[in-house]
């Protein structure tokens, strides 16, 4: 790579390769651009399928409409609350669980058993039906916390956090211990501040998870006013199951399921992801490599 190969074959390869990869990357963005173009088009060309990547009969009607749609706004609000509450709980539990498990078994008797207790859940799960019945018998149906508590501790993230804690120099821990610092102080003042990249990565993943997750909302929540945004969108795309809908909402629904409105709603639901994407990109490469390749 230091000396450049300037042979004809090499230069040809470069040209073909650059064009091919450019097209490939474009393929990844095109569906999103198409959706954006449809959402900004007039209704007639959009439903006739004449819009490709540029709006026809540009206007913002769809957006002004959804901004006034209380169904959409309400679902958006639920999603924002879910992300705030869900990420806080997940990250607290991830950090609190990972820290003790980085201790050696002689310092924390039973450490290995507890580790297996968590690890086993990565190998075997009761599955959808028993989990659903459990959530139902806990009385969590139609309760916001049905979206939070079943996923309160993501074990895989906890393992990544643990692996990161282990890379911190041992001497830091030992000298703090000898100085008489408590575990809470060591965790809060030493481990967490030194683990900012890992905490940031896992928080972002947690955020993306809670923002994107729609299935739990669709099985645990019947009341459409409690649905998070992705569940609402899913039902909108299916045109079903707004079972207990009021007449006024039904009328609104008919209008928002128009093609330009659907596109606009999908796009607005994507904006938060696009907004954190630069941060995500900065961290996730590190996070992924950290999670799978360890020395």
């Amino acid at each position: 790579m230091i000396v450049r190969d300037k042979s004809a074959a090499s230069v040809t390869f470069d040209i073909v390769n650059y064009i091919f990869l450019g097209l490939l990357a474009a393929t990844c963005l095109m569906p999103l651009l198409h959706m954006l173009a449809v959402s900004l088009s007039a209704r007639a060309p959009a439903s006739a399928g004449r819009v490709t990547f540029w709006p026809i009969g540009f206007h913002l009607d769809a957006y002004s409409y959804i901004i006034n749609s209380h169904l959409f706004l309400n679902a958006f609000r639920v999603s924002v609350i879910r992300v705030v509450v869900g990420v806080s709980i997940q990250m607290s539990l991830v950090v609190l669980t990972a820290y003790p498990l980085t201790r050696e078994p002689e310092e924390l008797p039973g450490r290995n058993v507890i580790m297996w207790y968590f690890f086993f859940t990565m190998l075997f799960a009761g599955g959808l039906i028993p989990t659903f019945l459990l959530v139902r018998s806990l009385g969590l149906l139609d309760n916001f916390f049905a979206l939070i508590l079943p996923v309160a501790l993501p074990v895989y993230s906890m393992v990544i956090m643990m692996n990161f804690f282990r890379t911190l120099p041992k001497s830091l821990y030992e000298s703090a211990m000898i100085d008489g610092a408590s575990h809470w102080v060591i965790l809060g003042r030493i481990f967490i501040p030194l683990s900012k990249p890992a905490v940031a990565t896992l928080s972002l993943f947690s955020m993306v998870f809670h923002w994107n997750e729609w299935f739990m909302g669709s099985i645990y929540l019947n009341d459409y006013y409690k649905w998070p945004l992705q569940t609402y969108l899913r039902q909108l795309l299916q045109n079903i199951d707004f079972s207990r809908i009021t007449l006024a909402d039904l009328d609104l629904l008919r209008r928002v399921s128009d093609r330009t409105f659907v596109s606009a709603q999908l796009f607005v639901a994507t904006i938060p992801i696009l907004a954190v994407y630069p941060f995500l990109q900065r961290y996730f490469v590190k996070g992924i490599v950290l999670g799978s390749v360890k020395e």
Binding site: S92, L93, L96, T97, Y99, P100, L101, I114, Y117, F118, T121, F124, A125, G126, G127, I129, P130, T131, L133, L134, L138, L149, P150, V151, A152, L153, V155, M158, H183, L187
Partner: peptide
């Protein structure tokens, strides 16, 4: 520190395992 995690996993992972 381990209690919240152990409880959460017990309820939402181990009880469904029993539920099978």
């Amino acid at each position: 520190m381990l209690i919240p995690g152990i409880v959460a996993i017990f309820i939402f992972q181990y009880i469904p395992m029993y539920g099978v």
